[in-house]
Amino acid sequence: MSAPNKSYDPVEVEALKPEEIAARLDEALAAIAAAADLEELREVKVAHTGDRSPLALANREIGALPPHAKADAGKRVGQARGRVNQALKVRQEELEAERDARVLVEEAVDVTLPYDRTPAGARHPLTTFMERVADVFVAMGYEVAEGPEVEAEWFNFDALNFVPDHPARQMQDTFFVQGNGTEGDESGVVLRTHTSPVQARTLVDREPPVYVVCPGRVYRTDELDATHSPVFHQIELLAVDEGLTMADLKGTLDHMVRALFGPDMKTRLRPNYFPFTEPSAEMDMVCYVCRGESVGNPDRPCRTCSSEGWIELGGCGMVNPKVLIACGVDPEKYSGFAFGFGIDRMLMFRHNVEDMRDMFEGDVRFTRPFGMEI
């Protein structure tokens, strides 16, 4: 029996030739050296060390070689990839040192400046925007109403037609205040989950007609991330008078949107369900960035509305007669409408804020560009 012919090479792989490996290595080293910042270096790393990089693809071709050729090709590719990784490490350290040195210069504090100089401050944009929205309704004859943030469960839920087993009452949505500090002893007091209890308090305390707008801070057991917070802000309006209809609600909301976003803005109402209004609707306004022109137009995508042409503002509807009865108002004589939306998310829409956490961290670099508008 004859011995195997080890000199016979049935496969020749172009990507594994020494000159090809050397060329790919030179390309990678040149790209690494040319990276001007850490972002460019990350792109270079993906291009030259990722799963689809030339050296990674060449490494996969080693299996196609005859046994006696694999070791040499593997060593050649391995050394090239090792040099690329080492060059990446060195260049990253260089760019990080440059970045740190630049930050030290750009954000340096001159401790020799006079200590009594007071830098220009800025109002928080949430405060400014909430007051701007309230001013729109004050100009229409509404009053600003306020209420406690630690609220009785009756005002927060029962008076607003939330049935006892409604999901919003559960611990996953609501912060309950314990009675005597023992687990399970709830006092019937919560951190308000919306500003609607201010409306209920207003109806209990006053005789119609009632026209109020209720801005304020609310609480829900949400995780803090880029688009959610356990503490956020809402503004709601309530109108109760004789003969009010959905047409009055639509006209009021149209005026608000045009006052805040421009005279050519349009709105629409979509049927929905809320316990405290009947009928209920979700209100949308046409996207103030693309004005609806991104719909079906792949050449002009819109990040603000995801190319849908509309932005959801909040819920609205006619006040449920059960709410009026609970607050001592005769539903046979009076009708009303209500509307509410989140201030924080609206601020994100208006000013392209990508992370909600920036609003609550107290960094003056976020608030200062909004200035001292009063």
Results as ranks from 00 to 15, higher is better:
52 R>C: 01
129 F>N: 05
109 V>I: 13
28 A>V: 02
40 E>S: 12
78 G>I: 04
33 A>N: 11
144 V>W: 02
122 A>V: 07
65 L>N: 00
127 T>H: 10
53 S>G: 01
104 L>R: 15
62 I>Y: 09
96 E>L: 10
33 A>I: 04
89 K>H: 07
123 R>A: 03
48 H>S: 00
81 R>W: 02
58 A>T: 07
40 E>I: 02
105 V>A: 09
43 E>W: 04
61 E>S: 13
105 V>Y: 02
133 V>G: 06
131 E>T: 05
109 V>S: 06
62 I>A: 00
66 P>C: 05
131 E>F: 01
93 E>C: 00
125 P>S: 00
129 F>Q: 10
132 R>D: 14
89 K>S: 15
144 V>H: 14
77 V>P: 02
76 R>W: 07
34 A>T: 08
64 A>P: 01
107 E>S: 06
52 R>Y: 04
100 D>R: 13
136 V>Y: 08
93 E>L: 03
121 G>F: 00
49 T>Y: 04
127 T>F: 10
54 P>N: 07
65 L>D: 00
58 A>V: 08
77 V>D: 01
142 Y>N: 02
118 T>W: 02
139 A>C: 02
125 P>W: 12
128 T>S: 12
63 G>Y: 06
36 A>V: 08
120 A>R: 12
127 T>I: 12
58 A>C: 02
104 L>I: 08
80 A>D: 07
95 L>N: 00
62 I>F: 07
55 L>Y: 03
145 A>F: 06
36 A>P: 03
138 V>S: 11
36 A>R: 14
146 E>G: 08
138 V>I: 13
35 A>L: 12
127 T>D: 10
115 Y>I: 05
107 E>T: 02
135 D>C: 05
82 G>C: 02
99 R>D: 05
99 R>I: 05
131 E>C: 04
77 V>E: 01
75 K>F: 10
69 A>C: 04
67 P>H: 07
34 A>D: 15
41 L>G: 00
135 D>E: 15
112 T>L: 12
28 A>E: 11
76 R>A: 11
90 V>K: 11
76 R>M: 15
76 R>N: 13
55 L>A: 03
95 L>H: 10
44 V>I: 07
75 K>M: 13
97 A>M: 08
141 G>N: 10
108 A>K: 07
29 L>I: 07
58 A>D: 07
60 R>V: 07
132 R>I: 10
58 A>E: 03
47 A>R: 14
133 V>Q: 09
33 A>V: 05
98 E>A: 12
113 L>K: 02
62 I>V: 14
108 A>G: 13
145 A>K: 07
68 H>Q: 14
106 E>Y: 01
80 A>H: 04
74 G>N: 14
72 D>I: 03
121 G>T: 04
88 L>A: 00
60 R>H: 10
116 D>Q: 08
84 V>Y: 11
98 E>Q: 15
48 H>Y: 14
